[in-house]
Amino acid sequence: MNNARAPLISVANLNFRIGETTILQNIDLEISAGEILTLIGPNGAGKTTLVRMLLGLLSPDSGEIRRNGGLSVGYLPQAFEVDPSLPLTVRRLLCLTQKPSPEEMEAHLDEVGARNLLDHPVQSLSGGERQRVLLARALLRNPDLLVLDEPIQNVDINGQTELYRLIMKIRDDRGCGVLMISHDLHLVMAFTDLVVCLNKHVCCSGHPEAVSKHPAYLALFGKQAAESLAVYKHRHDHVHGPEGEILPIEPEEAGHPQGGD
């Protein structure tokens, strides 16, 4: 990194449409080293689209994405599955686009607690093991920024906490930035520094402690959080029209915690 103070990636006033449909609107975002930022939002909120833009796989219609010079990114895609017809061991998966030495592979699997999996077929791994192996694979690139798209999908409940702990530990040990996408509200609050609610635009953002202590947040999420894996509801000072445009709502319905930016 050229400058530890500068954000790893910053996004300013980013817009993206497909045909007449607004996918992303006026997005501002900053991710710094040593910081875990989580994007939450309902299906179709544009989370994955935004991540694809941050990775440089997709260009916005307008707006600016600024990457720190020489930024190295480790990426974990959503719902990683390998077809059973393809014989692939963990060792071969780690060597797919890089050429790590056996010692490096062992060391990185060790770091994520997946030491004995080197010669296992990828298809035989549990959801949690698979994510650890993919993390090891991403860490082989010595990333400044980890981008994790729904990392706890297909991971059992106990494994989810462990995986988040591991991600925090990696952040602590390596000082890299972490960008996560999550559906999960309950767990993610304990393991992130910043939350950004996305629903085609940035609805609100802030520190999870501040957000989660707010009476309105507790009323909205407190009891539902455990079962809110897929269903994400929240209230805002606005509603969305059919094309994702922002519309005002009746004053008495407003009352969402506005995160500090």
Partner: peptide
């Protein structure tokens, strides 16, 4: 090498410069 990476996971291959 590239085709195998794309076959394993297209998003990942693409993010890693294939």
């Amino acid at each position: 090498r590239g085709l195998l990476a794309v076959t394993v996971n297209e998003e990942l291959a693409s993010a890693e410069g294939i």
